[in-house]
Simulated assay, not measured.
Amino acid sequence: MKTRKQDCRKKPYEKVTFQYKLFVVGQIQNGQISANFASKKYDISRSTIAYWLKKYSTLEQQNTGMSKQDEIKKLKERIEELEFVKDFQQDVIADMELITGVDLSKKLLPKSLAKEIEQKKRKISKENGSINALGLVNKLSTKDSNQTKPKK
C-alpha cells in the first residue's frame, strides 16, 4: 500500500508582526538555528525566510548609520593600512635576500611581487652601497657620495 503525499496547497495568509520577523531573522543570523530549521519550527516557507533575511539584514545595516561615504572612507583607510603592511613586508624580504644572497621571492612569489621586491633591493643597494660575498657592506666614501649628489 502506497501512502499519498499531502497536496501542496498554499496556506492561508497570516499577518506576522515586525517583531516576530526580526526575532526569527535574529536567531538565524546569530547562528542559533538554520533557515531550514526555522522554516520547520515556525511553519514558515523557506522562500519567505529568505526574503525576510534579505530585507531585514539591509534594514539592520541602515540602522547602524554608516552611509556609503563613510563606508568608502573606512575601506580606503583599510587599503592604505594594507599597502603599508605590504611595503614593510617587501622591505623585510628585500633586506633578507640582500643579506643572505638567496633569491626566494623569484621562486615563491608571483612575478609582480617579485619585481617589486627586486626594485626595492636595487634601491636599498644604491642607498647603502654594495654587499660583498662575505655580507659586508661596501659603503661609498663621503668624497664619492658628495660627487654623486647634485649640488643645490
Score class of each variant (00 low, 15 high):
106 K>G: 05
45 S>N: 04
11 K>C: 06
56 Y>N: 02
74 K>P: 02
121 K>F: 05
47 S>L: 13
94 A>Y: 01
108 L>T: 09
136 L>C: 04
28 I>L: 03
61 Q>I: 08
130 S>L: 13
90 Q>I: 09
19 Q>M: 14
137 V>L: 03
81 E>S: 06
93 I>G: 01
71 E>W: 05
152 K>M: 12
58 T>I: 15
61 Q>D: 15
56 Y>H: 03
65 G>Q: 07
14 E>N: 13
15 K>I: 09
116 E>H: 03
107 K>N: 13
95 D>C: 08
65 G>I: 12
88 F>E: 08
76 K>W: 05
122 R>H: 14
21 K>H: 01
137 V>S: 01
81 E>Y: 07
45 S>E: 10
63 N>D: 12
9 R>F: 15
77 E>A: 14
37 F>M: 08
21 K>M: 09
96 M>E: 14
56 Y>S: 04
32 Q>D: 10
120 K>M: 13
8 C>H: 11
84 F>E: 11
40 K>R: 10
57 S>G: 03
7 D>I: 12
22 L>Q: 03
132 N>Y: 02
110 P>V: 10
62 Q>K: 12
40 K>G: 07
5 K>A: 10
7 D>S: 11
136 L>K: 03
102 V>R: 00
113 L>S: 01
112 S>H: 14
19 Q>C: 11
98 L>A: 03
18 F>A: 10
46 R>E: 10
53 L>H: 07
36 N>S: 14
12 P>G: 10
37 F>R: 02
43 D>A: 09
34 S>M: 03
104 L>E: 06
104 L>Q: 05
61 Q>Y: 08
